[in-house]
Amino acid sequence: MERIKEKLVKFMTGRYGVDQLYYAMFALWVVLTLVNIKVDSLILMAVSDVFIVLAIFRGFSRNISRRAAENDKFLKVWNPVKRKVRLFYRRIREIRVHRFRKCPHCKKTLQLSIKRGKNTVKCPRCQEKFDVHIIL
């Protein structure tokens, strides 16, 4: 077993390996394959196969700088989406104890305790005061 491990390590030396874009392409391949089981479309199967082939190609590639640049471009798009999804789930999880409002001046999302009615809030970032109406 150690011999196989050594050969694999030697083979992967100087190759890019896996990153966040690889995992995203793999997850997309899994989703498309599961959808294709129900739909049974030749086009969908071809598209999903393209994603897995590209993911494997990226993992075995020796052009490390280009693969890293691709991953950076992906992360510039993915990180804001991920941040918004996490905030959405956090809002749902904390709906009984907090409300989230945006500051009208600097657009920062503030976490406010539930005080029903009209309240004056001071933004910790820009120090501006503004009124907040909390109904529920």
Rank of each mutant, 00 (worst) to 15 (best):
R3P: 01
I4V: 12
I4C: 01
L8V: 14
K10S: 15
K10H: 14
K10P: 03
M12E: 03
R15W: 02
R15Y: 00
V18H: 05
D19R: 01
Q20C: 04
Y22W: 14
Y23A: 09
A24N: 07
M25Q: 11
F26Q: 00
V30K: 02
V31L: 12
L34M: 13
V35R: 07
N36C: 05
I37G: 01
K38L: 14
D40S: 11
S41I: 05
I43E: 08
L44F: 07
L44M: 11
M45T: 09
M45V: 07
A46D: 02
A46R: 04
V47A: 12
S48H: 01
D49C: 12
I52D: 01
I56M: 11
R58L: 08
G59I: 03
F60C: 09
R62V: 04
S65R: 14
S65N: 13
R67S: 11
R67C: 14
A69Q: 13
E70Y: 03
F74S: 08
K76C: 06
K76E: 10
V77W: 14
K82C: 07
R83S: 10
R83W: 06
R83G: 00
R83Y: 07
V85I: 12
F88R: 09
F88M: 15
F88E: 07
F88A: 12
F88T: 08
Y89Q: 09
Y89S: 12
Y89P: 01
R90E: 14
R93W: 01
E94P: 01
E94M: 06
I95F: 08
I95A: 12
V97G: 06
R99M: 00
F100C: 04
F100L: 03
F100M: 03
R101G: 03
K102R: 13
H105R: 04
C106K: 07
K107E: 11
K108Y: 04
K108E: 11
T109W: 01
T109Y: 09
Q111T: 09
L112G: 02
R116P: 03
G117P: 01
G117Q: 04
G117S: 04
N119Y: 09
T120M: 06
V121I: 13
R125W: 08
Q127L: 11
E128C: 01
E128Q: 15
K129L: 10
F130D: 03
H133D: 00
I135R: 15
I135A: 11
